[in-house]
Design a binder for these strands. Structure first.
Length: 304
RNA sequence: GCGCCGGUCGUAUAGUGGCAAUUACACCACGCUGUAAACGUGGCGCCCUUUGGGCUACGGGGGUUCGAGUCCCUCCCGGCGCA
């Protein structure tokens, strides 16, 4: 007996490190194949974090709708779980419009969450519990988790307080953490942009200076004036963290630029490391847009 | 020329008789189950049969000592002070 299966929904994903030219490629492909873009960037979800987060401009969008940009208040934390819900909804909506959903972004964790590669337990953050737990030492947190969910304790990184706190939070609510499913229910074509270290460093440098010109410092100053605390800004990482240090006079402008550039570079390497593990990604050079187009064309063609 | 201080892993630093030798940054490698631009781990003199062993090392040379970045002598280099 033959099982009739619905064809999987096709989703295109453009990934790569910071400053690699993902956004431009995504727009190109969206125009060519009738797509709409779903951003997958944990900082660009926030309103008014524009220059510092390297958000695409209206002009650069070239009329292509971009979703999951500016959906959250920077003063309140957004999360991967929330992203999973919001983005899934948008994805379904794009499909009903008969358009090709194109995920574009550098936050690998968010992409995996959206595609269902990792399933996040439906346990909302418990701020009160977290507040109590952060005061505890890491070994203590580990002991607590071990008591609540020995299974999880076996595989977790026992030195990582953030992981431990979340695991305790989940264990308290559910008893134990469900195992993740490792397969996606979408038909995904993943295209990654790869550059040499020297090229990437060069781009990071140029882009940072360009954004300084565009008024990145003023943006951060303005965000603080509008109620974004320094502490919160530092917690956002990279640009905002170092901008906050600089504006509080914790470091000079020169120090800020030097440290920040290095941090951005480190971050890019972390992104690449995340993506490298995904064997489905087809890697292309930033110059090779034709390759991306032909790959997509081929993949879009109906089978049999 | 005299006096003082100092020369230790890429850089900065700790170490005053048992040291392949501290810490930070950089560098390299890695992890991640609702904070993911966050958060965390390991390596970092060379070699090997790698929970162990060998070799080479704290500016150069010599000495004291069972044993020396660590004490002594001498030379070289840098900083400061006096000439």
């Amino acid at each position: 007996m033959k099982k009739v299966r619905m064809p999987k929904i096709k989703v295109l994903a453009i990934v790569g490190p910071n400053a690699s030219g993902k956004s431009a490629l995504a727009v190109r492909l969206a125009r060519r194949f009738g797509g709409k873009i779903i951003s997958a960037d944990s900082r660009q979800v926030y309103r008014r974090l524009d220059i510092g987060s390297g958000k695409i401009t209206k002009r650069e969008m070239q009329g292509i709708p971009h979703h999951l940009l500016d959906v959250a208040d920077p003063r309140r934390p957004y999360s991967a779980g929330q992203y999973q819900r919001d983005a899934s909804q948008v994805l379904r909506y794009i499909v009903t419009k008969n358009k090709l959903p194109i995920i574009c972004g550098g936050t690998g964790f968010y992409i995996d969450a959206l595609l269902g590669v990792i399933s996040l337990p439906e346990v909302p953050p418990n701020l009160k519990l977290r507040k109590a737990l952060v005061k505890k030492s890491t070994p203590k947190l580990y002991t607590i988790l071990k008591k609540l969910d020995p299974q999880r304790a076996k595989t977790i990184d026992r030195h990582n307080p953030v992981r431990l706190i979340r695991a305790i939070e989940v264990a308290k609510a559910l008893g134990r953490v469900p195992r993740p499913s490792r397969t996606s229910h979408y038909d995904v074509l993943k295209i990654g942009i790869k550059l040499s270290d020297t090229e990437l460093k060069k781009r990071i440098h140029r882009r940072l200076l360009a954004r300084m010109h565009k008024g990145m410092v003023a943006e951060a100053k303005h965000l603080h004036a509008k109620g974004l605390s320094w502490k919160r800004m530092e917690g956002l990482g990279l640009e905002y963290r170092y901008l906050a240090y600089y504006l509080q006079r914790k470091m000079t402008k020169k120090e800020m630029l030097e440290k920040l550039e290095r941090e951005i570079w480190h971050y890019s390497k972390r992104q690449m490391r995340w993506f490298k593990r995904d064997k489905e990604i087809i890697w292309i050079s930033p110059k090779n847009i034709p390759a991306a187009i032909s790959r997509t064309q081929h993949w879009l063609r109906p089978k049999s």
